[in-house]
Design a protein around this nucleic acid. Structure first.
Lengths: 154, 154
DNA sequence: TATTGTTATACTCTATAACTATA
DNA sequence: TATAGTTATAGAGTATAACAATA
């Protein structure tokens, strides 16, 4: 049964109490804050969180395949193709042939790719330090461990 | 300068070490885990995290306007329109006129809306208990406080 | 002039199904 | 048969610009 529509005054103060008790909601809000700020930090380097993560994993794991990279990033392989296309098109990475398996691509970072990765990482670390300044070292560690624990449940 | 492309063996083990130290990355991964699970929990009720959050805020704040709701959800007003349209179209909420301001809509939950909200909240709390079972109460509290602190920096 | 809700639009992230070429 | 990469496609979340109605 639906109530009749009637005129009502707007509220003065909006209460968040129910949602604030939900870790999922708090996680989303905190992530959005970090993601938006990180986006601004990486934009001058023409990177996003996802392309930065992919470039970093490639630079740190010379020769990994797209399947391995998709797995490491926790995204589906079809979604990785455009990411790899973009990084390759900018000359930051290479799709190398793999001996004895002509289906696979072994990804490697070029020198410009590694240089951009280093610059981006420095910017990201500065961003993290700035955002996490509201937490003391102990809280930071507790946060990291809790997040990795939750991630591990997938 | 770009290296020549050459054949290379695939790696056996992919290292995550650089990204694992970044709160933003851990936050994203943990959120994706929770979001995916929550999606499955809410799907039978034809709700998503965002529609559930909107319905909850409306039920808890009878008469709030769309501007207030968008602010509370931390989304832009244009993105709220389809959410409110959907909830209203399903008879879960009403757009009521506001006395002395014919521009604004005072949102209210109908009885079916409040009932669905209650069922959804019970499902969400069960989901949270299941996901957060990997954390002890102290870790849970530390996580909540850290997330709210980060959110507050926006 | 400013605000509320709205439309139009675009970008990003994510997912599934189905194809190809190899294995 | 199975796997690696790819294409096509769709759903969802987010953002900005600009408009009409109203304040």
């Amino acid at each position: 049964m639906t109530q009749p529509m009637h005129s009502m005054p707007a509220v003065d103060q909006v209460s968040d109490d129910t949602l604030r008790r939900l870790a999922g909601y708090n996680l989303k809000r905190a992530f959005n804050v970090i993601h938006a700020d990180l986006g601004e930090v990486l934009a001058p380097l023409d990177l996003r969180m996802l392309t930065f993560s992919a470039l970093t994993l490639i630079a740190d794991n010379n020769g990994l395949t797209q399947t391995q990279l998709a797995e490491a990033l926790a995204i589906k392989r079809p979604n990785l193709v455009v990411i790899v296309d973009e990084l390759e098109g900018r000359g930051l990475i290479l799709r190398n042939p793999v001996p004895n398996d002509r289906r696979a691509h072994a990804l490697s970072a070029t020198l410009p790719g590694r240089r951009l990765r280093d610059r981006a990482l420095a910017a990201v670390l500065a961003h993290e330090a700035r955002i996490l300044a509201v937490l003391d070292p102990q809280e930071r560690l507790a946060l990291e461990q809790a997040l990795i624990r939750i991630r591990g449940t997938a």
